[in-house]
Amino acid sequence: MVAAAFTIMCLIFGTTFLVIKVGIDAGLPPFLSGGIRFAAAGIILLIVLRVTGRAKLSLLLRKETMISGAGLTFGTFAALYWAEQHVSSGIGAVLSATGPLLIVLIQSLLLRQKVSRRSVIGCLAGFTGVILVMIPGIVVDISGLWVLGCVVILLGEICYSGGAVYSKHVTEKLAGTNPIALNAAQMVHGGLGLLVLSLLTETWQFSDWAPVPAAASLLYLTVIGSMVGHSLFYWIMARTNPLFPSTWLYISPPIAVGLGVLLYGEEISLISLAGVVLILGGLIFMNQTAWDWLRRKAALLAGNKVLGQKNKVID
């Protein structure tokens, strides 16, 4: 179940960098676009969960969801949305792939947690692969704003990494709470923060928007990117660890390359193929322990199910 959820999440997130760029190019102010996306997704999810009795609106009043929202949503996506005005979606994907590496650094340097050599090697291999994947297709026009955009994305990834580590603490502290509800609450806080930032810094010129691509971008990112993708992220993290679900950041660039080949007839070089292999190899190597744990858990559940059926037959 976790493996299937992880695959779907990677496929979704692999498209979001490009869709964000589509919305911005259609005239949407970046902070407004991100704010609408996350606030709407979080509110809709919370209402559905409240009606079905699986969440309480009081989650919005907890400091844990406020802090998670500040890191995972507000800090991360304020940086990414703003930066994609000045850098390509490919560069955004490359720089965002530093997330898992930063999580390892936070766990080892700040939290003094023991991090395996396997995790460090896997992170470095994956990030190297990301660079190889994107090198042939990226033409960088070096400028002050381009450099600033890159720095801002990296700062956003610090927020993302800190939020991911803290969110694992939140899921453990609020163990009886639906993880999707926790995700919805943090998205509401992050989205509202982005909307406030938009009110303070942006001008909303509706006449300048290209309505069809703008609306399509918002709809896709709200429903598929946030309501489905980010809920899967939180659900997976609650069942594994902060690092494992974050490795989707290594999968998104190969997906972007694949979409280019299939939809636009772009060519893929041997360097890109080598990068894909290195990314997947680093991912598998880094998460071998997690996969072994999941396989043992699945085998245990299957064994318990068979035992239960046998007992039922005996009864």
Rank of each mutant, 00 (worst) to 15 (best):
C159M: 10
G99P: 01
G90S: 13
E172Y: 13
L32K: 01
A55P: 00
A210Y: 02
L174T: 01
I43L: 14
C159N: 12
V104A: 08
Q309I: 09
H169K: 12
L219Y: 09
C159A: 04
W146E: 07
W291H: 06
H230Y: 10
P100E: 09
G190K: 11
V277F: 02
W235D: 10
Q288I: 00
D315M: 10
A41E: 01
P242T: 01
E172L: 11
W209N: 06
L111Y: 08
M227K: 07
A39W: 00
L80W: 10
I67W: 12
S252F: 09
F6N: 05
Q85E: 06
V87S: 09
G14Q: 05
E84S: 01
V313P: 03
L59I: 04
G71Y: 01
G90M: 09
E157V: 14
P245C: 06
V257D: 14
L182E: 04
S246D: 13
A214R: 07
E172F: 06
F244T: 03
G258K: 01
G75S: 12
L218T: 04
V196P: 07
S96P: 12
G176S: 15
W235Y: 06
S217E: 08
L28G: 00
S108M: 04
A5S: 07
T52L: 13
L80E: 15
G122Q: 06
I268H: 03
Y81G: 02
G14I: 11
L194E: 00
I106D: 08
L249V: 15
P29H: 05
M187L: 10
H169E: 15
L132S: 12
L28Q: 09
T52I: 02
G282L: 02
T203S: 10
L219W: 08
G129E: 04
A26K: 03
W235P: 03
Y220A: 01
P100W: 02
C123M: 13
G258P: 03
T98H: 02
G53H: 01
L200W: 10
T73A: 06
L95P: 00
G163D: 13
G308N: 12
G190H: 13
M237V: 12
G191H: 03
L200Y: 08
P242G: 08
Q288Y: 05
M227F: 14
R296A: 12
